[in-house]
């Protein structure tokens, strides 16, 4: 579904991603972990071109997306993204946050979009918040709304950029719960996170990034029980 060939990204002289090759199949739940500055967030943000790669190719559903004539807006509709800091639209109600993209892009009528949004809100138990503004919500609620906002576009893949890192500890669980349900429904997911428990439980594959490279990858069981690379061993010994 997503194919990354020789992906490089540098900010000025600083090489953040160095010749990365990776393929993500439909239905996979890929969790990316690594120390800060390892390039894992940049890698994720390159997948929907929030960062423009400086080298290499990114293919999504059979199309190269980092080409001049690629319709990136159309491709992004199929790639939902969830941010560390939620990035809900503060001037819109929860319902409007969810419906603005499908309605603006004329993918759904306002009625359909509202219905769809309410159905999604019911699923995460926040239907009563439909008409409130984001400033009234807790961090956990905001992030669950942000997930629903992305889901309202019926994406084929969901990208999560440290979705629980900005949350108070007691709110991490509710967000992970929504993500687990999503995974159980068969959504293709790429998740950058520090939540090792989530990686163990949900991932079909775990990638370890360090210094702009994918240093090691494996099934969660092998990854956590029998790490091979010394950097990964060192990292796991610190975080587990």
């Amino acid at each position: 579904m997503i194919e990354v060939k020789g992906l490089s990204k540098s900010f000025g002289d600083n090489l953040v991603l160095d010749n990365i090759n990776e393929t993500i199949q439909k239905g996979e739940k890929v969790v990316v972990i690594g120390p800060s500055g390892s390039g894992k967030s940049t890698f994720l943000r390159c997948l929907n071109l929030l960062e423009q790669p400086t080298g290499g190719e990114i293919w999504f559903e059979g199309q190269q997306i980092n080409k001049k004539d690629a319709d990136i807006n159309a491709l992004r509709r199929k790639m939902g993204m969830v941010f560390q800091h939620f990035n809900l639209f503060p001037h819109l109600t929860v319902l409007q946050n969810i419906t603005i993209a499908p309605v603006t892009l004329k993918l759904q009528s306002e009625e359909e979009a509202n219905e769809n949004a309410m159905r999604l809100l019911h699923r995460i138990g926040l239907a009563d918040k439909a008409d409130t503004y984001p400033s009234r919500l807790s961090g956990g609620q905001k992030q669950r709304i942000a997930i629903v906002r992305a889901l309202a576009m019926n994406p084929d893949v969901m990208l999560f950029d440290e979705p629980t890192s900005a949350l108070d500890p007691e709110m991490v669980g509710e967000v992970l719960e929504v993500m687990k349900e999503l995974a159980a429904d068969g959504m293709t997911m790429v998740v950058v996170t520090h939540e090792m428990g989530f990686a163990r439980e949900v991932a079909t594959r775990v990638l370890f990034m360090d210094g702009g490279h994918i240093v090691e990858q494996n099934t969660p069981q092998e990854f956590f029980e029998h790490p091979k690379h010394p950097r990964l061993k060192e990292f796991l010994s610190k975080v587990l």
Binding site: N48, L50, N73, A74, R76, R77, M79, G80, M81, F83, H85, N87, L88, F89, I100, A101, T104, L105, A146, R149, A150, M153
Partner: peptide, 22 residues
Amino acid sequence: DPGQMEAGRSLGLSKWQTMFKI
């Protein structure tokens, strides 16, 4: 916040749609 533009773009809105709506 630049995150607002990113959120709009990540939903498939164009730069100008995000500019005017968000």
